[in-house]
């Protein structure tokens, strides 16, 4: 009989967890749509940039058809004022939201893990310094800073050669999110490293003559991926929500591009007249965020060492 590694056991447990599997499927679908969005929109022969003035009333721009202009050609309706297709907007918007949150999460994880390991393994002065740095960053009023620096820093990015407009704004979002996000993970990782390095199996490895690199990468790191994975699955939906909030506040992506945030921001104006316009992107966002959170919780349960015999 071949032994099952912890990874296989955790996967087997996750497979038994129906909620986790449903969430996983939903997320895969979301990512596929994110990747294939333009293709789908192409098949539907529409794009979020195409205006349909014929579908809205000339006075005030209200969609003509019922429920926000739902029709066979535009199953989710059209936008107030421009007549752009909402399904197409969702398909494209999802893509931007996912890019921002995924890349920001990756950067957060890399920063958090590297700095956390360094802090935990070095102890002493370095650890002290990094600890204070984290405290400092966490103490910043995040929203205030992000909003006030947005203008200056996006400009700066453009000067550095990033294409003007939404490209630099997206990059700005990714950078600030990861800059303010890594300390949480770094703290978790640092704590783990501190306790792991005292564990007897690390001492056993030292007693065997293993060097520092081996200890860090072969002994300690493989024991870290569980908390990292859980943290990442819980951070990603946070970032999706954060991006929506920032776009909502006008810091994020500008028209004609759309994201969850800008769609929501647009829709609240008309919520009394066309509730579907708020309801549709809102639901899509909630499903995405909840799926991630539930998956994160299931993952945490599956990784719980108490359950691994």
């Amino acid at each position: 009989m071949v032994g099952r590694s912890l990874r296989e056991i955790i996967w087997a447990r996750l497979r038994r967890d129906r909620v986790a599997m449903i969430c996983l499927v939903i997320l895969v679908v979301y990512y596929l749509i994110g990747i294939l969005g333009p293709v789908v929109a192409g098949i539907l022969n529409d794009s979020p940039y195409t205006l349909h003035p014929d579908l809205i009333s000339e006075m005030g721009g209200k969609p003509i058809a019922a429920y926000g202009g739902i029709s066979a050609a535009h199953p989710l309706g059209v936008e107030w004022g421009t007549g752009r297709d909402i399904l197409a907007q969702l398909l494209f918007g999802l893509r931007i939201s996912l890019v921002i949150s995924t890349v920001a999460t990756l950067m957060t994880v890399v920063l958090g893990v590297v700095i956390g390991i360094v802090a935990g393994y070095s102890r002493g002065v370095t650890d002290n310094f990094l600890g204070r740095l984290m405290d400092l960053i966490l103490a910043f009023p995040f929203l205030l800073i992000v909003m006030s620096l947005s203008g200056v820093l996006t400009q700066r990015l453009t000067q550095l050669g990033v294409p003007e407009g939404n490209a630099s704004r997206i990059l700005y979002l990714i950078l600030v999110m990861s800059f303010f996000g890594w300390p949480y993970l770094a703290r978790i990782v640092r704590g783990q490293v501190l306790s792991l390095r005292e564990r007897e199996f690390v001492e056993a490895s030292v007693a065997m003559g293993a060097g520092r690199r081996r200890i860090l990468f072969s002994e300690i790191l493989p024991n870290l991926w569980a908390p990292i994975l859980v943290y990442a699955t819980l951070t990603l939906p946070n970032y999706i929500g954060l991006e929506a909030a920032l776009s909502f506040l006008g810091v994020g992506v500008l028209p004609p591009d759309v994201t969850f945030g800008s769609m929501l921001a647009n829709s609240v104006t008309y919520v009394n007249v066309v509730p579907t316009y708020l309801f549709i992107p809102g639901t899509a966002l909630v499903i995405l965020v909840v799926s991630f959170n539930l998956l994160g919780d299931s993952l945490r349960d599956a990784l719980d060492p108490k359950g691994v015999h």
């Binding site: 007897e200 199996f201 001492e203 056993a204 007693a207 065997m208 003559g209 024991n223 691994v308």
Partner: peptide, 19 residues
């Protein structure tokens, strides 16, 4: 180190669970 080795008390903590 090759010549002197150690066996620890805790058979759970002293083996790396990922190996």
């Amino acid at each position: 180190r090759q010549n002197m080795q150690v066996v620890f008390q805790d058979p759970y903590a002293s083996l790396n669970p990922r190996m």
